[in-house]
């Protein structure tokens, strides 16, 4: 078992004919992900990946032809909201958006609309999902994680890779790794993923990687305290970040005294989460 994606996920890729999208489509396909179609308006009828994957003009057509149930979006930021609306309207229930730099007001409209449609969004500005040995949806390098019983949820990209790599170095495997993204308005949050890990029989331990900005880590701490039986270890990035500055991610900012790393660490520790001093320490905290 795993969460959100596995070998049975029928995935379409929106924007996978572009340079960046195609690069990652090749890697997802080579990993064994069940990538059934691509969608690029105006390129319907073409094929990508040596003729193995058909391209359609719309999500609706791609879904009708392939019965896809998830989509991964690489569409540039100015067209990304439209791509998400389109996927939701076509009846896709799992939408993973990799794109960075989507306007905040676009994301507020998208999130509200997707909630009404009952579609789950992961991202935006995220590395996607990896269920080792089954499916790689997004840009997480496939070779840095092995199958196992650790569930990983993170707001970051390369920092997550760092943790996956450290786990692998010690022979520890992963059930599913979920990148929820670094934007202030996103879809799936920590609590959604923690709940799924708590319910997933394969997952025995959980890693939570947070960062400054917002109060999602504090809410996660409250959830862990009340509802989690599985052990959680974590790391919070941005302890040295100055207030009022956006640290690369649109959502990583300390403003008006909220979003501080110290507050998040305090809340998580109070909920019994073991907080690492640096990311390479996380696997050690899970071992004993």
């Amino acid at each position: 078992m795993s969460i959100l994606v596995d070998k049975n996920t029928k995935l379409i890729g929106q924007g996978v004919t572009g340079r960046e999208g195609l690069f990652h489509a090749e890697r997802m396909f080579a990993y064994g992900t069940n990538l059934v179609a691509g969608v690029t308006p105006g390129k319907g009828g073409e094929w990508i990946l040596d003729g193995k994957v058909p391209v359609f003009d719309s999500v609706k057509l791609a879904k009708e032809a392939t019965d896809a149930n998830a989509t991964v979006i690489f569409v540039p930021s100015r067209f990304a909201a439209d791509a998400m609306f389109e996927a939701a309207d076509a009846g896709i229930k799992l939408i993973i958006t990799i794109t960075e730099g989507i306007p905040v007001q676009d994301m507020m409209r998208v999130r509200n609309y997707l909630d009404q449609k009952g579609a789950r969004l992961v991202g935006p500005n995220c590395p996607g999902l990896l269920t080792p040995g089954e499916a790689k949806v997004g840009i997480i390098p496939g070779d840095i994680a092995i199958p196992g019983d650790v569930g990983v949820v993170s707001r970051s990209g390369t920092l997550t890779y760092e943790v996956l790599y450290a786990l692998k170095e010690l022979g520890m495997g992963v059930s599913t790794c979920v990148g929820i993204g670094g934007d202030p308005i996103n879809g799936t949050n920590f609590i959604d993923v923690l709940r799924l890990f708590e319910e997933d029989p394969q997952t025995k331990k959980v890693v939570l990687i947070g960062e400054i900005g917002g109060t999602d880590e504090e809410k996660a701490a409250d959830f862990i305290q009340k509802h989690m039986t599985k052990p959680v270890a974590g790391f919070i990035a941005g302890q040295t970040a100055p207030p009022g500055k956006r640290m690369g991610h649109a959502g990583a900012i300390v403003e008006g005294g909220t979003g501080l790393a110290a507050d998040k660490i305090k809340a998580l520790e109070a909920a019994g989460v073991r907080i690492a001093k640096h990311p390479e320490e996380i696997p050690l905290l899970l071992q004993n």
């Binding site: 920092l159 960062e211 400054i212 790391f235 941005g238």
Partner: peptide, 17 residues
């Protein structure tokens, strides 16, 4: 000099640590 915002923040934190 780091790639990725989260890892860049973390590298700063680890230097401080």
């Amino acid at each position: 000099m780091v790639n990725g915002a989260g890892l860049a923040m973390t590298s700063m934190d680890v230097i401080k640590f």
